[in-house]
């Protein structure tokens, strides 16, 4: 018997055979699935979980917390003198007055209560933000 490599007759016969083919528009179906997959990926790339607004508010919150900590450590006078060192020719009278008023009101509260208030408002904000996102997607 011939070796399978030498069987040209069988090879010719098989080469002329028509293999099974899938249903109509098979490649269209595959491409549709690919395009669908691509568009979902694109959408996910475009839609960031946290938008610009979130990061601005978070930065402001962190800055505020930082200021509070700095005030509680150095006292309001220390913060003012440092600001004046940086900007010696600036007339800060009005701004300093209102700043002092706010700082006075904030520092008159115990720091722990201020922290709780700020944290809870932050959590309410996050909750509101996430709910908005979920409702938007649905």
């Amino acid at each position: 018997m011939k070796k399978f490599e030498e069987d040209k007759e069988l090879k010719n016969l098989i080469t002329n055979m028509t293999p099974d083919s899938p249903g109509r528009d098979f490649s269209g179906k595959v491409m549709n699935r690919i395009f669908e997959m691509e568009s979902v990926l694109e959408k996910l790339k475009r839609e960031r979980i946290f938008g610009k607004g979130f990061w601005i508010i978070t930065s402001l919150f962190i800055a505020l917390m930082g200021t509070l900590i700095a005030i509680s450590i150095n006292g309001a006078d220390g913060a003012e003198s440092q600001l004046l060192k940086l900007l010696p020719n600036l007339n800060t009278g009005g701004v300093t007055q209102s700043y002092e008023n706010i700082a006075e009101k904030i520092t008159s509260l115990p720091l722990s209560i201020a922290g709780i208030l700020l944290s809870s408002s932050f959590l309410v904000f996050i909750d509101h933000f996430l709910n908005k996102k979920i409702n938007h997607k649905a």
Binding site: F26, V30, M31, I34, E38
Partner: peptide, 8 residues
């Protein structure tokens, strides 16, 4: 992406 249809 549409060139993939030739491969399919």
């Amino acid at each position: 992406t549409n060139y993939f249809s030739y491969i399919v």
